[in-house]
């Protein structure tokens, strides 16, 4: 590991100006991804600016019933917060489905949003990887890619975004607030992770040196009946092979409002807008749910070894929406 300087920021302005002072400076949240990647040599900062002491922790309910989640809130504190569990249960479930108790206790919301892909080639500095070394190639396309993308990938990179939390945030129209030396800004989650294109190393639309300060969830009454389901290769403590966040409001047997987002299928949490469009106004039946899944997955382009994700996601849509509809009918 390369040597680095360490500094604790006590204020937001101080944090962004400290970061601007280092050529290869990084913010340090819980360190559960960054320190790991520094050990592997993927990240080699010369300065870490610790942000956990910033006054950015905690969850607040907004006047209209949405939530403002501070960027340094730990994953545990987010998941167990009563208002998160009441208003956005799928978000609580998504966070609880990720990592382990001893990681969630230190991992922060800001760090979770910016966690890097788990593509094995990305983490192995002896191999080429366009994301790590732009222009070096993508061995995953011909190699090990059973848990890589089926949607939105390009010939330059087929990696997925591994976050569970991000999938629920995508379903609920989260907005990310940040601060820079030039002042604050906001990005809807839908624009936060740019398309892969020929720049897989550009993973967010954040300006350079931006400090994430908060994530806002607009009020969404539909989210009170929501669920996150994650499929993985063992019962717990593994990244998803496919996951789903969904919320459903059925009135008189007809879908009044629906939210669907997929995880582990693309370089970003995948909001399933085509599925939502196909379902809105349709009867709340397993046939409509399957048709909605097909509408979204029509765009899927599986690689040689990850075609299983298409039926996996389709089954997730049908089973989770069926459960939500049955619950609504009770």
């Amino acid at each position: 590991m390369k040597e680095f300087a360490y500094s604790r920021a006590t204020g937001v302005e101080e944090a962004v100006s400290l970061l601007a002072g280092g050529s290869e400076a990084r913010f340090l949240g819980g360190g559960t991804n960054l320190v790991d990647l520094m050990k592997s040599g993927v990240e080699a900062p010369d300065l870490l600016v610790d942000v956990r002491g910033l006054p950015l922790g905690g969850v607040e309910v907004t006047a209209d019933g949405g939530l403002v989640i501070g960027a340094t809130t730990t994953n545990s504190d987010l998941a167990v917060h009563p208002e998160v569990r009441r208003r956005f249960p799928a978000l609580s479930q998504a966070v609880l489905a990720g990592a382990s108790g001893q990681l969630r206790n230190v991992a922060t919301v800001g760090g979770n949003l910016l966690q890097r892909t788990r593509c094995g080639y990305f983490a192995d500095t002896s191999r080429p990887c366009n994301k790590r070394v732009p222009g070096s190639g993508c061995p995953a396309i011909e190699g090990e890619h059973h848990n890589h993308a089926i949607l939105g990938w390009s010939d330059h990179c087929v990696a997925t975004n591994p976050s569970d939390m991000g999938v629920a945030l995508a379903a609920f129209d989260a907005v990310v607030s940040y601060e820079t030396v030039d002042g604050p800004g906001e990005l809807p989650l839908a624009e936060f992770y740019p398309a892969v294109g020929d720049t897989p190393h550009v993973e967010t639309a954040l300006p350079a040196g931006a400090l994430i300060t908060a994530v806002t969830l607009p009020a969404a009454p539909v989210a009170a009946r929501s669920r996150y389901r994650k499929v993985r290769e063992r019962a717990s403590y593994a990244f998803a092979t496919g996951s789903l966040a969904a919320a459903l409001d059925v009135r008189d047997g007809v879908v009044h409002e629906v939210r669907i987002a997929f995880g582990a299928v693309a370089s970003r949490p995948w909001r399933a807008r085509a599925a939502e469009l196909s379902l809105t106004g349709a009867p709340a039946t397993a046939e409509s749910f399957a048709a909605a899944a097909d509408a979204e997955l029509a765009a899927a382009k599986p690689l040689a070894h990850n075609g299983y994700k298409i039926p996996l996601l389709r089954n997730l849509v049908v089973s989770v929406l069926t459960e939500l509809a049955e619950e609504a009918a009770r």
Binding site: Y6, L28, G30, G31, T32, V35, D36, L48, D50, R52, S76, G101, Q102, L103, N105, V106
Partner: peptide, 16 residues
Amino acid sequence: LADGRRAVSCLQLAVA
């Protein structure tokens, strides 16, 4: 345990 909460110590920097 860090402040009573469980945490992995291998990804935590001593200085932090």
